[in-house]
Design a protein around this nucleic acid. Structure first.
Lengths: 135, 135
DNA sequence: CTTCATGCAAACGCTTTGCACCAGC
DNA sequence: GCTGGTGCAAAGCGTTTGCATGAAG
């Protein structure tokens, strides 16, 4: 049998109008937005993208670590993060406005707590919610 | 028009076999369990309760502060808390086993962060996940 | 006997998937 | 012209609700 084409390991991401539109939009907004909201905004901007595609693209970006995801009230909200490093968020309950928070003390505390109780592979979820100045 | 009966403010909780079964079960387990899991366990114990009733009862208990709720992977898990005071959890990803954690330092830190950024009505969600000794 | 609880089935809201068509490269 | 992307419609999944029946007090 003939040899495999030895394709590049990258899944060959393809540039499309839809992906560009979503990526550009995320670059302009730095508040958390749901897939549905992003879909609506794009439609209002005349850059219509199918809801399925929005979900698929956001999912991919989240997997690639390009966007942060928050789950609130049973739905996911997305946001392009400025910091690549591990961080948490202070999020406005009303408008989704968010501030990135780094909390080394808390990280350390969480690891200690887990270790002290014999838990391994510790991980934690932490978000602070409130109402921002403008709301 | 005649006067209102001046009913007691309590919504008149009624003792039923189903509620007793759910409440008893929660008293025996101190790991987080989903509504579906509780429904299954009760059925296996011969104490069958409709899934709807399990949801409604857990919801009511959560509203009353009698049980703690955790949302993970898009589904809710419940557990009778030992401490009435505000606390967080260290939860096993595999079996749902949980330890109640109190973290005054973190509470204070969260409030400060919110205040420093001009957020009001601050609140936070924090859970530590890991794999427990027995898993 | 009145009121609230139960439970089935249907509805819901968000998200994912199947599949035919379309567009990068 | 392959190969992967898109988008509609339909399915999935946890959860909630409408409504007729049933039990508690």
């Amino acid at each position: 049998m003939t040899r495999l084409p030895a394709r590049p390991p990258q899944p060959g991401l393809r540039r499309t109008r839809q992906r560009a539109a979503i990526s550009d939009l995320l670059g302009e907004i730095d508040d958390f937005r749901t897939a549905q909201q992003i879909h609506d905004i794009l439609r209002d901007n005349g850059e219509a993208v199918g809801l399925t595609t929005v979900y698929r693209t956001l999912q991919a970006m989240a997997d690639a670590g390009e966007v942060d995801v928050i789950r609130h009230d049973g739905e996911a909200a997305f946001r392009r993060c400025h910091t690549a490093a591990h961080h948490h968020h202070l999020v406005c309950r009303k408008c989704g406005h968010a501030v990135e928070i780094s909390a080394p003390v808390v990280e350390q505390w969480a690891d200690e707590v887990a270790r002290d109780h014999g838990f391994r592979d510790a991980d934690h979820e932490l978000e602070i919610f409130g109402v921002c100045r403008n709301c």
